[in-house]
């Protein structure tokens, strides 16, 4: 599955790569935080694709980044 994701990304344009990563990450993030999922996904997509791939492969990594993103968003909205 990992190589499929990597090879799929390698054949896509930078714009398509971000969209694909967003489509893959969004349902995972939505399961963790339904309310802020759209903003969290948008925020995480500003990171390098290699980091986003790592998050797709590592639920622990994704969760910690989601927690960070939630903290930043709440600080912005306060």
């Amino acid at each position: 599955e990992k190589s499929l994701i990597a090879s799929t990304l390698a054949s896509a344009s930078p714009e398509e790569q971000k969209i694909m990563l967003g489509e893959w990450l969004f349902p995972l993030i939505q399961a963790m935080n339904p309310t802020l999922a759209s903003k969290i996904t948008g925020m995480l997509l500003e990171m390098d694709n290699s980091e986003l791939l790592h998050m797709l492969e590592s639920p622990e990594s994704l969760r910690s980044k989601v927690d960070e993103a939630v903290a930043v968003l709440q600080a912005c909205q306060a």
Partner: peptide
């Protein structure tokens, strides 16, 4: 205060505004 436009929200199936910054 004023509304915050960051971060650009991602919605599946919808073009992502954040792409303008790449």
């Amino acid at each position: 205060g004023s509304s915050i436009n960051w971060p650009p929200e991602f919605h599946p199936g919808v073009p992502w505004k954040g792409l303008q910054n790449i």
